[in-house]
């Protein structure tokens, strides 16, 4: 990269550039300083100590009212906690069906089979229907 300048380039570089208007200095710097103060104030407002002091400023005029509100909330929590249902979960695990239930289901099954025209289904086949199986397979057997 040859960075030597030719006479033409030297002539261009000798052309004086316009000067910045003198009045801009005060205006630009004033705005810059004002903005920086706003920025630093915003940052200061985010500090925890300032937050606490602001909070106390809000709470201070009516301390009894705020204390009363806090007491009401504590009371609500206490009542809610004491009224919570402490009985154990009713059916965490499904119990195996009782013989009566099985018999009832067999009967319903038989009736269903009669309704759909499978009257000649043998007892052996019927008993096979009631071996515990996944629900999807049960449907296939019923439809057979």
């Amino acid at each position: 990269m040859n960075e030597e300048m030719e006479p033409f380039e030297r002539r261009l570089s000798r052309q004086p550039l316009r000067q910045i208007p003198a009045g801009w200095r005060a205006e630009i710097l004033a705005v810059a300083v004002r903005e920086s103060r706003v920025e630093s104030r915003e940052q200061a407002n985010l500090r925890p100590s300032t937050l606490a002091s602001r909070l106390s400023t809000i709470l201070w005029p009516h301390p009894k009212a705020w204390a009363g509100l806090a007491a009401v909330w504590v009371l609500i929590f206490c009542v809610d906690f004491s009224m919570r249902d402490k009985s154990p979960v009713v059916a965490e695990k499904a119990a195996p069906p009782s013989p009566e239930v099985v018999a009832e289901l067999k009967q319903q099954q038989r009736m269903l089979a009669e309704l759909i025209g499978a009257r000649d289904t043998s007892d052996a086949d019927r008993s096979k229907l009631w071996t515990p199986q996944p629900r999807s397979e049960r449907v296939e057997i019923l439809m057979a």
């Binding site: 705005v31 810059a32 920086s36």
Partner: peptide, 15 residues
């Protein structure tokens, strides 16, 4: 002017 202002404000806000 706007750009110069923007640059100096940026510098002032983020030293």
């Amino acid at each position: 002017r706007d750009l110069l202002q923007e640059i100096f404000v940026k510098l002032a806000r983020e030293p």
